[in-house]
Design a protein around this nucleic acid. Structure first.
Lengths: 301, 301
DNA sequence: CCGATTGATGCTGGAGCGGTATGGCCGTGA
DNA sequence: TCACGGCCATACCGCTCCAGCATCAATCGG
């Protein structure tokens, strides 16, 4: 025998617990002579007498008592280690670093997190609010494992999966003349004061809104630029003007703002998951699955 | 394959560290195909893919990374567990509860402890000062593993080994008429005031001293009884009288007391180790060995 | 003193571990 | 583009060693 094996530990533990070779062998479902010999081999390999045996009784030596205690711990750890490895593979255990855009915090992200933490309580999530550009940079550098962002991404190494499409809504102050309507045509907004996403910080929304207006024949009269949805909705609520915002904004539930549908139903904006193709870990798979399902359910309502 | 063995862990660790089957096999001194198969068996048994292998490269999966970390810990623990078991057997590691009589604290016990702690720093010693009678009671009840006491013991289950013999000396105040002598005959003490060990607490010394005096034909004139050597020597130093004490007392180094040898060189008193026959543990063996050696060295000086 | 109990030993068969030879796939360099 | 080399997997084989069976040896109880 070259080295000590798990078999020796299991056998020794059985004998040490029963202090009886015959019964221990029975529990182990082997014959008693086999057990005797394995214990002898173990002791020979260790150079240590673990069990003081007379013909009638078996007792632990001090070295045996120590060895039993340690052995027990090692076997327990081995079992736990196997179980945990299986759970990692099943995506139930592990670690995931998630990047997300600010606007997802109004509804989508909390919904995903709640569901995910319920289903996979032992996957540790590390959350980082980041712009889309930062996420696209952070993914290849492995600073995040998955990003919740607005496409396009445009890196062939990064996989993108759209999980949610949002229409644009018109946000108007409650006291505004249009606030009573449910649906409105963009054409009627030509003379309104607009609060608009800034070109630098939110280029996607900026260009989308401009081209929407252009298509119906006017250039919006912009009284204020802002970057984040909640800022813009806040300004609308303060009566500063109207704004076109993705429907996520209605989750903000600001009482002084009404949200109207747009008759032309312009092209929606998307929210997507993005991740490195190569490192599709089990925890990531779990996260994608949950995010997809949660987004689908949100679409329904 | 029924269960995972240490072999699998060692092999997996090697591959996971090298990320190369060929080199890992070389390190393990086995052929590469054997290694490949053992890893396959391990993965099949676990139901988990630990290594992502393409034709050109090997990488750890998340489950593999976890498994490597745990595996490493388990293997380390196994090595430590084997080493510690060997050290327990060698008496270099463990625990020992020692009972000792008060008088041993003047010289013998500290000398033994110093030597023992130097040679066996990882044997934890638990020390209890106890009378001889208490020790004899505590040994079978396993409250102490070994006792440092004065024989006789008289229990066939308890082994006794004398390690030191002490002569009796005469303690006299420095200002006493006899203080200038080096050796003195007991006969000259017939009219002196004695401080004597109490019959209840120190029956051995009490009876020994009385029989010593009886042998030369007088009954000592006792002015005070006391139990512990240092009390008696203290009273001698205060000029209260003279006393017969075991030579251990001279370790007290009280300046106002002189110690004289006794011409009749009466029967010495012994200090012995006592322990249960059945539980002769390695740590106990180490302790006995050290105690014997230290006592022998004390005899020389 | 005999039978029962219990751990150890001798012998045998077979599973499985490791070795050699080889295949298959992919990247590299001329 | 083709040939070569690197690397992991597969096929096959021999041998080690584990487990089982039968039996022995020692000890205890009656």
């Amino acid at each position: 025998m070259a080295v000590i094996e798990v078999r020796h530990l299991r056998y020794f533990r059985a004998v040490a617990e029963d202090l009886h070779f015959g019964r221990a062998a029975e529990r182990l479902r082997i014959a008693q002579p086999a057990l005797s010999r394995q214990i002898q081999n173990l002791e020979r390999e260790l150079g240590v007498v673990l069990l003081a045996r007379t013909q009638r009784s078996v007792a632990l030596t001090p070295a045996g008592a120590l060895f039993l205690e340690r052995t027990q711990r090692i076997l327990d750890e081995l079992i736990k280690c196997v179980a945990d490895a299986r759970r990692v593979q099943a995506g139930e255990y592990g670690h995931l670093t998630v990047g997300f855009i600010h606007s997802s915090t109004y509804g989508l992200l909390p919904a995903i997190l709640e569901r995910f933490r319920h289903l996979y309580p032992e996957v540790e999530l590390e959350l980082h609010e980041m712009t889309v550009a930062d996420q696209i940079g952070a993914l290849p550098r492995r600073q995040i494992d998955v990003g919740l962002l607005r496409p396009p991404v445009g890196d062939p190494e990064i996989k993108v999966q759209t999980i949610l499409e949002e229409r644009f809504l018109l946000a108007v102050p409650s006291k505004h003349a249009l606030a009573a309507e449910r649906v409105i045509s963009l054409q009627r907004l030509a003379r309104e004061s607009f609060i608009l996403f800034s070109r630098q910080q939110s280029p996607l929304f900026h260009s989308r809104i401009l081209s929407m207006c252009e298509r119906v024949g006017f250039v919006p009269h912009v009284v204020q630029h802002a970057t984040q949805i909640h800022t813009i909705v806040g300004l609308v609520g303060a009566g500063m003007g109207i704004a076109l915002v993705p429907e996520t904004a209605s989750n903000l539930r600001i009482s002084s703002v009404n949200f109207l549908e747009i008759a032309e139903s312009p092209q929606p904006v998307e929210i997507a998951l993005a991740w490195r193709m190569d490192k599709e870990t089990p925890a990531l798979r779990s996260f994608r699955q949950v995010a997809t399902l949660v987004a689908q359910k949100m679409k329904m309502t």
